[in-house]
Design a protein around this nucleic acid. Structure first.
Length: 265
DNA sequence: GTCCCGTCTC
DNA sequence: GAGACGGGAC
């Protein structure tokens, strides 16, 4: 599918660029599967610059799966609120509780086991395998997808499975970790979305006033005060939207409702 | 308004 | 397969 010459050229181009331009990111200093996993969960749909501070504080407070598994939800969310997608934090704790119970607190090192854990999908499973264990698996995020499409002049509609096969083919022998770091940086700094015009797979609407905006604000308010009456919230939010959002968050067990008072569960 | 080292639910 | 899910930076 790719001549070995084209492959070598591509590898050399990216790796040479990386040698001179690589970003010094805290999670690249570790090979601890747990901290690698924490960084990857935080990085899901979230820009690097915003993750750095959260990551450092988080692993300082929750340095291993056992500490995380025992944390109170209030404490946990206080270390996540502001990052976005608070459910990622809850799933990460669930994951910690599962591996503590079933695997001695150890993050598994094979794809099937990783995929069974909450919050880990195809991307994150491969990211852990590559960054923690240096395994030669394709790590296909939005950056690397864009790099492949651009460098090999592929159709934007190329199926992910096809891109994965190509990505796998491109990994230099025994250099999965450094190669994927290089591709990430190359993609986010050189072959940017703006420059190439290659659209990402996920889209999102306006944030201000949206359900997600209400959700984020509710979590912040509940971290400040232990209990909040639903009634007092209707002055800040549209009541119908508020009820709708609260119902969904109750289902997700983000917090509980008792006598019209909300509190973190 | 658009994007970001995606995943889960329905 | 579509929609939901945070929040700041550009």
């Amino acid at each position: 599918m790719l001549t070995s010459k084209a492959k070598l050229l591509f590898q050399k181009k990216v790796l040479n660029w990386y040698k001179k331009n690589k970003r010094d990111l805290p999670w690249r200093k570790t090979r601890n599967p747990y901290t690698v996993l924490v960084s990857e969960i935080m990085l899901q749909q979230t820009q690097v610059d915003r993750v750095i501070g959260y990551y450092l504080k988080f692993i300082d407070r929750f340095p291993d799966t056992l500490t995380l598994s025992r944390a109170r939800k209030r404490t946990l969310l206080s270390y996540w609120s502001g990052l976005g997608y608070n459910n990622r934090a809850l799933n990460l704790q669930k994951l910690a509780q599962i591996v503590c119970k079933e695997n001695n607190g150890i993050i598994p090192r094979n794809e099937q086991s990783l995929l069974k854990l909450p919050g880990i999908g195809p991307y994150t499973a491969h990211a852990v395998l590559a960054f923690a264990f240096n395994k030669p698996v394709p790590v296909l995020d939005t950056n690397i997808r864009r790099v492949l499409i651009y460098e090999f002049s592929l159709d934007e509609k190329t199926p992910l499975e096809e891109l994965k096969a190509l990505a796998l083919d491109c990994i230099p022998e025994k250099k999965s970790r450094i190669w994927h770091n290089a591709l990430m940086d190359y993609g986010s700094m050189v072959v940017t979305a703006r420059k190439t015009g290659i659209a990402p797979l996920s889209k999102q609407g306006t944030f201000e006033g949206s359900d997600r905006w209400v959700r984020g604000n509710l979590v912040k308010l509940l971290l400040k005060s232990k209990r909040i009456s639903v009634n007092s919230l209707t002055t800040q939010f549209d009541e119908n939207q508020l009820r709708h959002v609260i119902n969904k968050m109750l289902k997700e067990k983000l917090f509980i409702l008792k006598n019209e008072y909300l509190s973190l569960s």
